[in-house]
Each structure stands twice: as structure tokens, then as C-alpha cells.
Amino acid sequence: MKRLLGGLLALPLGALAAEPVISAAATAAPVVSAGVGGQLMQLVMGLLLVLGLIFALAWLLRRVQNTGSRQGQVIELISSRALGARDRLVLVQVGDEQILLGLTPGRITPLHVLKEPVHVPDAAQKATPEFAKRLMEVLGQQKDKP
């Protein structure tokens, strides 16, 4: 693994070392800087392309997973609340029962089975967080501008 990583890191340096040697009589500064600058630009553009591809695929995967049919699901997540960096409370519905679960990195603990189900209004389920609303407003305003 270390050899592979070292080989990948040495690739750009090997490309720089492969620059053609120009005679001492010719002025080498513009040619070498243009070659190195061009290679650096190519490296940066390739990196941006790969990062863009990763983000696009992650977005597409999230969209595809969310469009799956929810009918036939027996277990449904009603609500979730973070208690700390790694601890959560989760309210799930299984059939007609609602169960409050405590989630920690090492275990899932049922805390309480609710006798009377908690009814969550539809508007609260589909509410978008404030940051997402603001972001959509800003993106909408930028689309209007030429």
C-alpha cells in the first residue's frame, strides 16, 4: 500500500523531471515555466474533475435511495434527536407500536414502548431546515441574474 501511494505521489514529480533540457544559449525561463504551469493546470483540472464526479455520484446515489418505494415498509423512522456527538434517541414505528430507542456506538437499547402513538403532522415531517431554505433562496436569486 505504501509503495502504491508513493508511486502515485511520485507521478507528478516524474512528469516535471521529464521536461526537455534546453541548451544554455536559448532562454529557458518562458518555456520551462509554461510547461510546468501547463502541467500544474492539468493536474488541478483533473483533480477538480475527479472531485466533481465523486460529489455528483454521491448526490445521484442519495436521490436514487430516496425514490425507492416506501410501501411495504414495516419499520418507519418517526423522529430522531442527537444527545451528543455519537448518542441519539430514535422513535420508530413497527406496525401499530412506537418504540423509543437509545443509540450508542456499541449498542441499541429499547427505552420505552409507547402505549399511545405520537401523531406527527404532515407539515412537520416535510419541513425543511432553515439553512436549506436560505440556500434554496440564494440559489434561486442567482439563477435569475444573467
Rank of each mutant, 00 (worst) to 15 (best):
G6L: 09
L8E: 03
L8S: 00
L11S: 03
P12K: 00
P12F: 02
L13T: 02
L13F: 08
L13V: 08
A15W: 15
A18K: 10
A18P: 04
E19P: 02
E19L: 10
P20S: 12
V21S: 05
V21D: 03
S23K: 12
A24N: 13
A24E: 14
A29F: 10
A29Q: 02
P30D: 00
V31T: 13
V32T: 09
A34L: 06
A34E: 15
A34H: 06
G35F: 15
G37E: 00
Q39F: 15
L40F: 15
M41Q: 10
Q42T: 09
L43C: 06
V44D: 12
G46V: 00
L47I: 01
L47C: 03
V50P: 04
L51H: 14
G52N: 01
L53W: 09
L53C: 09
A56D: 06
L57I: 08
A58F: 15
L60P: 07
L60Y: 15
L61Y: 12
L61E: 11
R63P: 05
V64E: 04
V64L: 04
N66A: 07
T67I: 11
T67K: 05
G68V: 11
G68K: 11
S69P: 08
R70A: 15
R70H: 14
G72L: 01
Q73P: 13
E76F: 13
L83P: 01
L83K: 04
G84H: 03
A85Q: 04
A85K: 03
A85P: 05
R86D: 06
R86V: 11
R86A: 08
D87R: 14
D87S: 12
L91N: 01
V92D: 02
V92S: 05
V92I: 12
Q93L: 02
Q93A: 02
Q93M: 01
Q93F: 01
V94H: 12
V94W: 14
G95Y: 01
E97S: 12
I99N: 09
I99L: 05
L103E: 02
L103I: 03
L103T: 01
L103N: 04
G106L: 06
G106C: 02
I108W: 12
T109H: 13
T109F: 13
H112I: 02
H112R: 13
V118E: 14
V118S: 10
V120H: 01
V120W: 10
P121L: 00
A123P: 00
A123Q: 05
A123C: 06
A124M: 11
K126P: 02
A127F: 00
T128A: 10
P129T: 06
P129Y: 00
A132D: 13
A132T: 12
A132F: 14
K133M: 05
L135R: 03
